Computed example of a mutant assay.
Amino acid sequence: MHPVTIDSERLRLREFTEGDVDALLRVYGDPQVVEHMSFEPRSREQVETTVRAVIAAALAEPRTEYSLAAVDAATDELVAFARLAIDTQHPGQNSGQIGFALRADLWGRGLGTELARLLLRLGFDDLGLYRVWGARSPRNVVSGHVMVKLGMIEEGRIRGHLLIGGSYRDSVVHSILAPEWSP
């Protein structure tokens, strides 16, 4: 499925372009935004590499990664990175993982919930997935609230899941199944 465009009241998911590098740097280069993510703040060069990689991945057949620019629906200004990755390790399981990073100056306005809802729409309504899951840092309580608000069930903790900055970090997994999904 390419190109992807999905709209909500305030946001639009669209494919990345090479012109998105500087706006994405405001997200991925911000230590506050990536504090609970699986990587350290990224440099401009790293963001350029990311954008090139997601543009290439969007053209893969079959497409297994939907890394999308989340933009303000009124202005087309990039405000977040949104991702739905189809699980390929276990063919036939029909599931995918969501994740997103929203600019810090926009936190507390419900945009994270709106963005995650768009990713669930993509997974269930457009791609026909049966299960969608997300993982978060145990300290990222807000992300947990977003997932629960959308009907995602906390499944448990993966201990020592990620090595970040020389230390291992746990992850908390949430999921939702197609019969539980309500747009």
Rank of each mutant, 00 (worst) to 15 (best):
S67P: 00
Q97I: 13
W133P: 01
G108D: 03
G151R: 05
R42H: 11
L120H: 02
Q89S: 12
G29D: 00
G96P: 01
R44K: 10
Q32C: 00
V51Y: 09
H145F: 02
D22N: 06
V146F: 05
D72L: 07
L78P: 07
I158W: 04
A82T: 07
R52L: 12
T49G: 09
R131N: 12
V4N: 11
Y168H: 15
R109F: 06
G19H: 04
P41N: 01
T88R: 15
E18I: 10
P138K: 00
I6F: 15
H174Y: 15
Q89R: 15
L118N: 09
G112D: 07
L111H: 08
E61T: 07
R14Q: 06
V148E: 09
G110P: 09
P138R: 00
G156Y: 01
W107L: 15
A135R: 15
A60F: 10
E61G: 02
M147I: 14
E15D: 06
L102F: 11
A69N: 08
V33F: 06
D22L: 04
A82Q: 08
Y28L: 11
G134H: 04
A57Q: 15
I98P: 04
F16P: 04
S137P: 01
Q46R: 13
E155G: 12
D170N: 01
L68I: 10
V148K: 06
G99D: 13
P41Q: 02
Y28F: 12
T64F: 12
A53D: 14
